[in-house]
Design a protein around this nucleic acid. Sequence first.
DNA 1: TAGATATTAAGATAGTTGTCTAAATATTAT
DNA 2: ATAATATTTAGACAACTATCTTAATATCTA
Lengths: 92, 92
Amino acid sequence: MSLSQTFQALSEPNRQKIVDVLKKGELSVSEILQHLNVTMPTLSHHLDILKRANLISSRREGQQIIYSLNLSVLEEITEQIVKFLTIERLKN
Amino acid sequence: MSLSQTFQALSEPNRQKIVDVLKKGELSVSEILQHLNVTMPTLSHHLDILKRANLISSRREGQQIIYSLNLSVLEEITEQIVKFLTIERLKN
DNA sequence: TAGATATTAAGATAGTTGTCTAAATATTAT
DNA sequence: ATAATATTTAGACAACTATCTTAATATCTA
């Protein structure tokens, strides 16, 4: 999973919102939809992008598909980003 | 400066490379160019995007324009991103 | 097995992005 | 002043993205 793909996945406001609402716990597609101003197919598309970036996972539960954050992946990504954005300088 | 704009600025591989080479110190446009496979105008465009995202600054030095990272901004952004990607959970 | 509910897939379209070439601007040196 | 060097601006274009409507698929319930 490349850092570019991660940044790209997170660069869209709706997708940031999805990550944000999933922090509180897993949700079905319909539940996520209530937090956004897009149609179901558009949401589905965004979920697909986040899934390909390995940021979220889904499982079927009866009629519904439940999405949740990949917590361990998020931790790794956070580390990677910190490493990328941190400049090693001489300490005084 | 929004988190979306930051992510968007950093989602392009050439721009990541620019940030990366500037970690070692400030460079002129021509010097940065040597690390990338694009034309000068394309590089100029990417520098503009990074500048608008407040990630880099430029100053003229004679015939050259010298670019450098905005270190304090990078630190703030890192904090923001960590905050965004970190999920507060109950500790056992 | 129908009908209802939930989600994804397909196809179209407008807007955005990355790239280039050519031209303009700014500084230095002759 | 003119020419040379360094960088940005303008304009064009192909590729990509976000969005929608319509259609297809999957599951549950009666």
